[in-house]
């Protein structure tokens, strides 16, 4: 398989605090790659880094983002702008606040086509109507003229997906797109994303903390902990035989149907804050299998896992 995006040694800092500690991964053409982790693990920062949309307080300090033959970090701001929304599109967690309240849904989708492809307003709105139909918005003609506050959360996320797919991007970055939605709506949005992905062959970088979502949509997954990738592999192999103790705990935490437990499984303790990462393996204070070496020496990512214990077995 060909890599569409190659991320190498990506480091991001907020001031003096490093929140991404040299991330390496590839996104292959047409695949859905999930990044999984707790809040604060660095998964959203990773997603925003792909768009170079981190904001003023954060800075990409080193690394490269090779995307169809060029390094996104080398592009000028204007060149990067032409990549955004055209070659790489993004959808966000908060469908409530991600749309501008004073413009109609149709206009906000049409804007992408006007900006990147020089559509006239009329042609762009016509295309927007087709996109609304594609993402399963009922009465698309009328919904074009609806303002965000007139739409439900699920409808707004469909509008966001229509907006993202308007330019048929090569990569779709989805930052917890279903987290804020009701469970039934979540399932619909996931089904829509699968449909869109197979229709356009778009690669998807899917950020989530929900193992159920990973199982239903992703081909491969990365598990992040404290600004590092701790395990990577195909969804099947990781669900079947997770090697890193953290991945094992994460999977044990996800309750599944048909399995009645007296107590829900939890991971003891809290994810460490970026300005106080523990020495050695960053997970060792919470790890039940930690050996002496874990607190002394930081493990490296070897054959898909960053763990002294797993590596030795």
């Amino acid at each position: 398989m060909k890599a569409l995006l190659e991320v190498r040694d990506l480091r991001v800092s907020f001031g003096a605090t490093e929140v991404l500690d040299g991330i390496d991964f590839d996104v292959y053409e047409g695949e859905v790659l999930a990044i999984v982790g707790e809040s604060g693990s660095g998964k959203s920062v990773t997603a925003l880094s792909m768009m170079r949309l981190l904001g003023e307080s954060a800075e990409i300090t080193s690394g490269s983002l090779r995307f169809s033959g060029r390094d996104l970090l080398e592009l000028s701001e204007d060149e990067m702008r032409k990549v955004r929304g055209r070659e790489i599109a993004m959808i966000f967690q908060e469908p409530m606040s991600s749309l501008n309240p004073v413009y109609t849904a149709g206009f906000q989708v049409a804007e992408v086509l006007e900006e990147h492809f020089g559509y006239s307003r009329k042609a762009a709105l016509e295309k927007a109507r087709e996109l609304f139909e594609m993402v399963g918005i009922p009465a698309p003609e009328e919904r074009l003229r609806s303002y965000p506050h007139e739409l439900s959360g699920g409808m707004r996320q469909r509008v966001m997906i229509a907006m993202a797919m308007a330019s048929e991007p090569k990569l779709l970055v989805a930052d917890e797109p279903t987290t804020a939605l009701d469970v039934t709506i979540q399932a619909q949005i996931l089904a829509l994303m699968k449909d869109v992905r197979s229709r356009f062959g778009t690669s998807v970088l899917f950020i989530t903390h929900d193992m159920g979502v990973v199982a239903s949509i992703a081909d491969r997954m990365l598990v992040m902990y404290a600004g590092q990738i701790v395990e990577e592999g195909s969804v099947e192999s990781l669900f079947e035989s997770p090697r890193h103790p953290y991945t094992q705990r994460l999977l044990a935490c996800a309750p599944s149907i048909g399995e009645r437990k007296e107590r829900l499984s939890v991971i003891e303790g809290f994810a460490p804050s970026p300005d106080a990462y523990p020495g050695g393996c960053r997970f060792h204070p919470r790890c039940s299998e930690a050996i002496e070496r874990c607190s002394a020496e930081p493990p490296r990512l070897v054959r898909g896992v960053r763990c002294w214990v797993a590596e030795d077995s």
Partner: peptide
């Protein structure tokens, strides 16, 4: 600081459209 400004940037809009059309309008 609003999320929809981030959306406008993620769309690849030119900065003056982000500022005048999306931010200032609000």
């Amino acid at each position: 600081q609003e999320d929809y400004i981030r959306t406008a940037r993620a769309k690849g809009l030119r900065e003056h459209l982000v500022i005048y059309r999306h931010a200032l309008r609000n």
